[in-house]
Design a protein around this nucleic acid. Sequence first.
RNA 1: GGCGCGUUGGUCAAGUGGUUAAGACUCCGCCCUCUCACGGCGGCUUCAGGGGUUCGAAUCCCCUACGCGUCACCA
Length: 488
Amino acid sequence: MTNRVRTRFAPSPTGYMHIGNLRTALYGYLFAKANKGDFLLRIEDTDQKRYVDDAVEFIQNTLKAANIIPNEGPDIGGDCGPYIQSQRMDIYKKYAEELIESGHAYRCFCNDCSEEQHSMQEAGDAKSFGGYNRACRDLDQSVIDQYLAEGRPYVIRQKMPLDGEVTFHDVVHGNITIACDTLEDQVILKRDGMPTYNFANVIDDHLMNISHVFRGTEFITSTPKHVLLYQYFGWEPPVFIHLPPVMGKNPDGSISKLSKRHGATGFSQLVDMGFLPEAITNYVALLGWSPKSEQELFSMEDLMNKFSLDGLSKSPAVFDYNKLDWFNSEYFKAMDAAEFARESKAFGGIIAETLGEKWEYLALLLQTRIHRFNEIPDQIGFFKELPSYDIDLYNNKRNKVTPEKAAEIIPLAIDIINKIEKWTPEGIDDILQPAIADSGIKMGTFMWPIRIALSGQKVTPGGVTELLYLLGKDESIHRLNCGLDKIK
RNA sequence: GGCGCGUUGGUCAAGUGGUUAAGACUCCGCCCUCUCACGGCGGCUUCAGGGGUUCGAAUCCCCUACGCGUCACCA
């Protein structure tokens, strides 16, 4: 037995990667890498009802996009395979029977107890599970043999101690003690031969030499059952790290576990909205973990170097789309301009297409102005078509512009612009700037009506020069004339 | 309901008996400026409540409140 750090991400294959799951995967991965260990992917598909086609592939693609690279897993292979639980049924069966041999588990033939128990709970009486699922504990061997011979279906249940308590250590919460009489004789092998999570998880974590288990706090209460299993087998339990849930904020101000109604909660949905994978990972890493320094921007490599268990927080964190926006915009600003232009182009749609090589120029203007790619269409819509606008937009108090004033300025602007030969940002400025200076009109005053006429809106990416350049000479003059007509 | 876990500004958070209780996001104001954005500067807002322990508590103990989780042949 080595002391090598080995962690795992063990999702069930639903075709979706919740941001909370991603964080669990990330922390396990970072911890493994920070300690020169291994990170593996294991698919927990023991619930056939829940199985979703292509989900395994989806998970792998998501991890890849998030730059979380397993050392072992379904596609990669490794010494502890197979890494898909449905392909390990023989293993679970063998260990379950071993437990029966040693007296720590038993076959339960009582078909209806689970349903009966379930309805009891719903009726609000959760206290007395023992009366049902323990009925088969002490069946005579002869009876068992007879049932088996009849081919009666059964499940295998783990025998819990009737009294005493189990204490285990959790890295983020410290020691946790739970009384055994709150533990039911849980099913470890289902009627269809599949193991339950609580069993397969223990077997696989042991067989795969997992040293540290990262999972959500929802498993805290079932951990004593796992600990008991480790004891029964004489195995060393792993180190437990139970992560608090990621929350979302409701309209009324209350918080609850992050879900669809809070907005996009899947990694791929966030990517579709135009968030950069690195920004998402960066943000998520800090949601529940603190580097205990003022640094906030981390590359994956940075995270690997700095991640440590003592920065994990024990209380739930609210997912904040504002902060994600901020992270993403920081990543935008740090991007190479050409790369940003390339990555953003798809979101520019038809406008980006028609702009041709001018797209790079527009993209540069956008780069410091947007938080995520999907803000692009709103930013640039006016390039394609001049929106209908109210002439009230020509009023601007600070620059002392009114529609009447605009009607004086626009003809001047048209004259000047007509004289421009070299249609580049520099060429435009070379003519425009001195001409405005000569006119005796203040810069802000002169520019305001032009911006409005050109864009139909008072806020635009870039200034008038940029607008002129991107729109082209003919279109610019056309829009200026339209503006003039509109005022009159 | 039983059991378990949690609670520092609107949000993420540092803080482990003595601090003016960091920093970031958001919001607001100012500067820069042909709009916006970027950048710079500044501001608002916090230790859930109540008891202890202590010369001294965000930090230690107890109680209360609130929130969350769990009590499946789901994970």
